[in-house]
Write a protein that binds this DNA or RNA. Structure first.
Length: 597
RNA sequence: GCCCCCGUAGCUCAGUGGAUAGAGCACUGGCCUCCGGAGCCAGAAGCGUAGGUUCGAUUCCUACCGGGGGUACCA
């Protein structure tokens, strides 16, 4: 678990002294980690070492706490040590410690809150998220994975690792031919079957392909035989898949070769639309990984199957090739190569896993609950490939319930009955959409009713946080107008900051590094969002109670004025530090920090 | 059937072994001669049920009740 000592030499020193005190007292080794007390009036930091030692030392925890305190070489920054409750040892730090924090934040700027790792410890983390099939537009639910995956990636970066944001494009296989068929039929103005994809996006893709490739795309078989499913498929001279039961069920009105070529072009067009929407959401990927190009055409699937076979993980049965996933905890063994020679999607998954593992040290998958069934086989596949258990991480997020005026909306790409992400982003704005998803954990099923989100938008907590930032910006502008000397941060006497609201704000500002580290470790974006909300609240309280720029009053004596100015300067820089911390938190969530609202 | 997630304030959600369980919305009552009232202060209200582990459980385990999802030589 992340420890505050990691970010702060003062706390590291205190932690070390606690450990030394335990040894000096003849107590067993114990975790000397510092924690934040829930109640701020208990102190700035606390240790539960005495409580933890009660059992092994067979002594009353309060006695142990007393022993610990007796042997503790209290550093100068600790102003007060107290034993409380069942055996907590609380530490109150000197005001000067918090006040210096303001300078540190101002110096570190945008870097404050982030940590760095040495080359030895730094990992390349592959973060795969969204990866929705490119057979239709992204709907609102995908927005959750976009916002969350992207923010988690940002958090992992902030914790000091390198990140690759990756989208896996399912642009191969039967569904692509069927998608192509749908586009062809729409382009010709013919009736769609039950298995076809529909919706406005299909129409738009059809129009787009017509204008770039001409009408013949939909009526004449291509010169070159195209394959949607790669090396495993067997084709006749006319491009028709042989021995493929799916073709028999395909639409007789569309030549399979036309369906395949239109499918490939259409899927790429749809993928581009998805990329555009994600960009509008503030999400930009490092890698768009094509299943067709990267796994089928490249021969990676055959290589992966061969590798798995060489590792002794596969066997033949009924003419098909199975992977022994039950050896690694899966419910049943999974087919890699069907009896007709075509690879399954699972074979693609294995090959993709292998490819990613060659490029990264740690693999993170963010999947929706509808893919929960894949987890077992995916982990088993990873084990079969020799990927260590602790280097692959699959997180399941609960689905978003889409509502329209309180009524559930059944989402289906084939039926084209969706609420598109781009519509929602246009209507309520990126910040609202992102924040709506980021402020709650992945395990929560969230309702998303466009009407409600749009209507409540002015009461959305994101505005509360942004308002705090805008308010400080306004303060800075005001100070400017009054001729405030901005260059004088070092002249400010920060020891003047002793008002309870000032100290509370200082303590809140100190919390960012630990919050970021914990949020990154737990992959929990809501931690940071809630922190930002609390910080905003703390600032608003400070701002209500503590006047920064003294109101003008001609009757004031020069002495009084000088005092007010000195205090105002300190408060001004405290506010500027708060603005920086708010901006840093929002930046990690990829939510804007406006100067004005 | 089996597997996964969730039941915390009237509503939406935080809180992954510690002290008095927190926010927002909604409700009630206060606060602008002054830096942004998109704000602040005060009030009322809660851990689904029953056991277990522990010095200590909202948190971990078991059962039950309630809600959602997953279980293919599908794609």
């Amino acid at each position: 678990m992340a420890s505050p000592a990691t970010f702060d030499p003062v706390l590291a020193d205190l932690s070390e002294r606690i450990r030394a005190a335990l040894i000096a007292a003849g107590l067993p080794e114990a975790d000397a980690a510092l924690e934040k007390p829930k109640q701020p009036d208990h102190g700035d930091w606390a240790t539960t070492a005495a409580l933890r030692l009660a059992k092994p030392a067979k002594r009353n925890p309060r006695e142990i706490a007393q022993l610990l305190v007796d042997h503790l070489d209290v550093p100068a920054v600790v102003e007060e040590v107290s034993i409380a409750g069942p055996g907590f040892v609380n530490f109150r730090l000197a005001h000067s410690y918090h006040q210096e924090l303001v300078r540190r934040i101002l110096v570190e700027g945008a870097v404050y809150g982030r940590s760095t790792k040495g080359d030895q410890d730094r990992l390349t983390v592959n973060v795969e998220f969204v990866s929705a099939n490119p057979t239709g537009p992204l709907h609102v639910g995908a927005g959750r994975w976009a916002a969350t995956g992207d923010a988690i990636a940002a958090l992992i970066e902030a914790a000091g690792d390198d990140v690759v944001r990756e989208y896996y494009v399912n642009d191969a296989g039967e569904q692509i031919r069927r998608f192509g068929e749908s586009v062809v039929l729409v382009a010709r103005g013919e009736e769609l079957g039950d298995d076809h994809y529909r919706g406005h996006a299909i129409v738009e893709v059809a129009e787009q392909l017509r204008s770039t490739h001409g009408e013949s795309l939909f009526t004449e078989a291509p010169d070159e035989v195209v394959s949607v499913s790669g090396g495993g498929a067997k084709h006749g001279t006319d491009g028709r898949l042989l021995e493929d039961p799916e073709v028999a069920s395909g639409d007789p009105r569309v030549d399979p070769a036309i369906g395949a070529s239109v499918g490939i072009l259409g899927v790429e067009a749809m993928r581009q639309r998805i990329q555009d929407v994600l960009h509008a959401m503030g999400v930009d990927y490092d890698v768009w990984f094509s299943e067709r190009a990267g796994l089928h055409d490249s021969g990676a699937i055959e290589e992966a199957v061969t590798a798995l076979t060489e590792r002794g993980e596969t066997y033949d049965a009924d003419g098909a090739l199975f992977l022994r996933t039950t050896d690694h905890g899966d419910d049943k063994d999974r087919v890699l190569i069907r009896s007709d020679g075509r690879p399954t999607y699972f074979a693609s998954d294995c090959a993709y896993l292998r490819d990613k593992w060659q490029r990264a040290d740690h693999l993170y998958y963010l999947l929706g609950a509808d893919h929960h069934g894949y987890v077992g086989r995916l982990l088993a596949a990873a084990a079969s490939l020799g990927i260590p258990e602790d280097r692959i991480e699959i997180r399941i997020g609960q689905l978003v319930n889409l509502l329209r005026d309180g009524q559930p909306v059944r989402m289906s790409k084939r039926a084209g009955e969706t609420i598109d992400l781009d519509e929602v982003v246009d209507e309520v704005g990126v910040d609202v959409v992102r924040y709506h998803f980021l402020r709650q954990g992945l395990d929560t099923q969230v309702d998303f009713d466009l009407a409600v989100v749009a209507q409540q938008s002015m009461e959305n907590p994101v505005y509360y946080v942004q308002y705090a930032h805008a308010r400080i910006s306004s303060l800075i502008r005001m100070a400017d107008e009054r001729g405030f000397d901005h260059a004088a941060a070092d002249d400010a006497d920060l020891s003047l900051l002793v008002h309870p609201a000032e100290l509370e704000l200082l303590t809140a500002l100190a919390g960012l590094p630990l919050t970021v580290a914990e949020a990154a470790e737990l992959r929990a974006t809501q931690r940071l969002a809630r922190y930002a909300e609390e910080l905003a609240g703390t600032f608003h309280r400070f701002y209500t109670e503590c006047r920064v720029l003294a109101p003008e009053d001609p009757d004031r004596s020069p002495d009084e004025q000088a005092q007010l100015d000195a205090l105002g300067r300190s408060r001004y820089w405290l506010a500027v530090a708060a603005k920086q911390v708010l901006a840093n938190a929002l930046s990690l969530l990829r939510v804007s920090a406006p100067e004005r609202m």
